[in-house]
Amino acid sequence: MRHLVLSDIHGNWPALEAVLQAAPPFDRVLFLGDAVGYYPDGDRVLGWLREVGAECVLGNHDAWLLALDRLPVEGVVLEILEWQRGRLSPENLAFLASWPWQREVEGALLVHGSPCDPWEYLDDLAPARQAFRCSEARLAFHGHTHLAGAFLELQGPRPWVRYQAFPEGGELVLPPSVRALVNPGSVGQPRDGVPGAAFALWEGDRIAFYRVAYDLERVAARLAEEGFPPWLYTRLTLGQ
């Protein structure tokens, strides 16, 4: 079975559209959290995930949106989430609220941050080593850092961990003796210096990474239409 692996869409519908136009055929969608936040079309993103029956886990922005009645709404991020929550359909809000923090799909673990803590950033070797100890899964998919790449653990008496980045695409083939923590990158707001929408395809022991360009001016127009901060567009042009 071929899985389309997505993370950190953040309400960026033009980016998700570009992914769907560029992706090879797939059987199932795995989503690693943060459907909402930053860009205006969170309801549309959630509607698509619900329609395709995506297997989803909560991200921190998703959790913040669900908890807004218990949080002081201060700062741009929470103000955007409050704006989005007021525009979510009841069906999409209930769908979002049903997501767990982690789940297993065909032996792979799905989590937003780390197997140890769904809010933790796997952005260095030390937290990656700890993450491997928090799960027995050979393969785990995560997001949160918005960086496309994989931490690889070579099993043995003293496991050895290294990192491989895939900011412009590429393919990872897992040998039997290797475990992996794989981040497909962010669909909606990459932060590895390469503009475009990132995603991955997982089939068996192969994970293919992709980065697809799209019309950023469509996002700029949506931001202007809804009065969102222009720096959200600038970040997309820089891939940061």
Results as ranks from 00 to 15, higher is better:
40 P>A: 09
30 L>F: 03
169 G>C: 02
53 G>N: 03
194 V>D: 05
225 E>F: 13
44 R>Q: 13
216 L>P: 02
228 F>M: 04
191 R>H: 11
43 D>F: 07
175 P>G: 14
95 F>L: 04
238 L>D: 04
87 R>I: 12
205 D>N: 12
239 G>S: 07
126 A>R: 14
216 L>F: 09
29 V>Q: 00
13 W>A: 14
159 P>V: 04
51 E>D: 13
108 A>E: 04
119 W>H: 15
7 S>K: 03
36 V>Y: 00
235 R>G: 15
121 Y>G: 11
31 F>V: 00
124 D>W: 10
27 D>T: 13
152 L>I: 13
217 E>S: 13
198 A>V: 04
237 T>E: 14
8 D>P: 09
27 D>G: 15
147 L>S: 02
227 G>D: 05
226 E>M: 02
27 D>N: 14
16 L>P: 02
178 V>Q: 11
110 L>V: 07
208 A>D: 10
227 G>Y: 05
26 F>P: 01
223 L>N: 07
167 P>L: 05
20 L>E: 01
220 A>G: 11
12 N>W: 07
188 G>H: 12
191 R>S: 10
53 G>I: 10
195 P>D: 08
178 V>R: 11
107 G>W: 11
229 P>T: 06
115 P>Y: 08
50 R>A: 13
31 F>E: 00
165 A>T: 01
211 R>T: 14
186 S>I: 12
143 G>L: 12
128 A>V: 10
162 R>W: 15
220 A>V: 05
184 P>C: 08
232 L>I: 07
155 Q>N: 13
88 L>I: 09
231 W>L: 14
166 F>C: 08
109 L>D: 00
208 A>W: 07
18 A>C: 09
125 L>I: 15
147 L>H: 14
6 L>A: 09
193 G>L: 11
